[in-house]
């Protein structure tokens, strides 16, 4: 540099070297690819976010959850939390509140449900384990998500949005049973009613 007088150059007039051009092109194409994979997955993938949601008053959502529980309750756990077995394909209500998920759901493997989730107070997290589905729950917004359990077992719903001092106590449950168990249970309850 010392041989030349300082040049009053402007950065945007500099040339682009071949090595730089190649790397920038690779990075740009890779970015486009990652962008279109997201769109492709919306068309062809099986795990996508729902685009259906509604504004709802928390007390209205609470009432609907109560009505849902009355219609389909099959029992209660040791602490009195209702266990609800909704029919396949139906609308299912799950309320998050300080500090529990209400009610316990019993779903059938391979069946599809329209799960309506909302919070009655603060924001909460819906972290379904161990399948590992993590969603955000807002007060005042009802998220409608179509869910198809593909394995049986007892699944925990862990709140993963900090919601105050009882946050770490906030766990819910979804039990997934297979079709035969569900049919058997249905037959027993019909027999019981007769």
């Amino acid at each position: 540099m010392a041989l030349l007088p300082p040049k009053n150059r402007l950065w945007w007039n500099e040339p682009l070297h071949r090595m730089e051009a190649i790397w920038i092109s690779i990075a740009f194409v890779w970015g486009l690819l990652m962008f279109f994979v997201m769109i492709w997955w919306h068309i062809n993938g099986n795990q996508n976010m729902s685009n259906e949601s509604y504004r709802i008053q928390p007390d209205v959502f609470a009432d609907r959850t109560e009505a849902f529980i009355q219609a389909y309750q099959v029992g209660a756990d040791d602490f009195g939390t209702p266990i609800v077995r909704p029919p396949a394909g139906s609308d299912v209500y799950l309320a998050a509140r300080l500090w529990d998920f209400y009610p316990i759901l019993e779903l059938v493997e391979g069946e599809t449900y329209r799960v309506r989730i909302s919070s009655l107070d603060w924001q909460h997290g819906f972290s379904l384990q161990p399948t590992n589905i993590n969603l955000q729950i807002h007060p005042g917004i009802e998220m409608v998500i179509t869910l198809t359990p593909n394995e049986t077992g007892a699944f925990g719903i862990v709140c993963n949005e900090f919601c105050g001092i009882g946050h770490h106590l906030m766990v819910g449950r979804i039990n997934v049973i297979d079709r035969e168990t569900a049919a058997l249970a249905a037959a027993t309850s019909v027999a019981g009613e007769q």
């Binding site: 990652m34 994979v37 997201m38 997955w41 919306h42 993938g45 795990q47 996508n48 976010m49 997290g125 972290s127 590992n132 589905i133 993590n134 969603l135 955000q136 993963n160 949005e161």
Partner: peptide, 12 residues
């Protein structure tokens, strides 16, 4: 930050 993959990781 990939829209759908975030389902696996949000708030974990």
């Amino acid at each position: 930050g990939t829209e759908q993959i975030n389902i696996l990781m949000h708030n974990t």
